[in-house]
């Protein structure tokens, strides 16, 4: 498909357009909050605390009188940053491992990498976060490491699975005949052919990362106050839910819509980039 054709197909996909618009809205909010927010999120004004949504505070205020819209904008920075770095860790380590396992299929290296993956899979990111927090105390870095480690086997398995059938192709054989080593073949021929798959999975892991970050911050293992984070905001809202339900509504919708946007974008990308589905 030509680039223009691909773009046209992309614009026709409702999932892709709606998903990207949703995700972009939050990304723009996050970037905007670096320069400007409606109110200062570090400013505590007890006089205006727990106000319901109004023309002055669109999303209301929290128990310290902070503007919830501003906090959601700043919180988007946290969520996006944690999830991006965590996916980066997962890809950065997982993809080379997967490529190596596929290149050495059936050898000791392959076996070691795959068994290592199985082991990491037995540790849900929450348990990794619990162990790190116990030893080093809670921080945003914990959340990043915990979610990042969890992502490694996801990308390693995906890459290996996609790379294995490629190794039997004719063009790989001719590359081998021309004297290229397994590392060069993996980088020059295998990797470009699994990139689409990695982009789709990356989008999905990104949305899972946002959910996981929110959950970790909610239970106090992730981002620490006063840094605004969506999960933290929900934790604060919990005891006040009977008198200030708006405190629980907006951060929750922020998470829901971001994750929904990324999932839709992921589905749309898969339909677009996977030739098997596209031609069907």
């Amino acid at each position: 498909m030509t680039e223009e054709g691909l773009l046209r197909a992309a614009l026709r996909s409702r999932n892709l357009v709606v998903g990207h618009l949703l995700a972009a809205a939050f990304a723009i909010g996050a970037v905007l909050s670096l320069f400007w927010t409606p109110y200062d999120v570090t400013e505590l004004t007890i006089a205006t605390r727990l106000q319901a949504p109004s023309a002055i505070h669109w999303f209301g205020t929290d128990h310290f009188g902070r503007d919830i819209l501003s906090m959601i904008m700043v919180g988007a920075q946290t969520s996006i940053a944690v999830a991006i770095v965590a996916v980066g860790i997962g890809m950065g380590i997982g993809v080379p491992l997967g490529l190596a396992a596929a290149a050495r299929r059936g050898h000791l290296l392959d076996e070691t990498i795959m068994r290592g993956n199985d082991l990491v899979f037995a540790f849900p990111s929450l348990l990794i976060a619990i162990m790190i927090t116990t030893v080093f105390g809670p921080s945003a870095l914990n959340a990043i490491i915990a979610i990042g480690i969890f992502n490694i086997p996801v990308f390693a398995r995906l890459t290996r699975g996609a790379a294995l059938p490629l190794w039997t192709r004719d063009y790989i054989l001719s590359a081998r005949v021309s004297g290229k080593g397994p590392v060069r073949i993996s980088v020059e021929h295998i990797l470009p052919n699994v990139t689409n798959l990695l982009i789709v999975q990356g989008t999905i892991q990104f949305s899972l990362g946002i959910l996981a970050e929110a959950a970790l911050s909610y239970v106090g293992l992730g981002v620490q106050p006063p840094t605004p984070s969506w999960g933290r905001m929900l934790a604060d809202s919990q005891t006040l839910i009977a008198i200030a339900p708006h405190m629980a509504m907006f951060p929750g919708f922020a998470i829901l819509l971001t994750v929904l946007g990324l999932n839709l974008a992921g589905d749309g990308l898969r339909d677009l980039l996977d030739p098997r589905i596209r031609n069907a």
């Binding site: 909610y218 829901l256 999932n263």
Partner: peptide, 8 residues
């Protein structure tokens, strides 16, 4: 259902 945080 997939996108909603279960604690929320």
């Amino acid at each position: 259902g997939v996108a909603i945080p279960n604690f929320w």
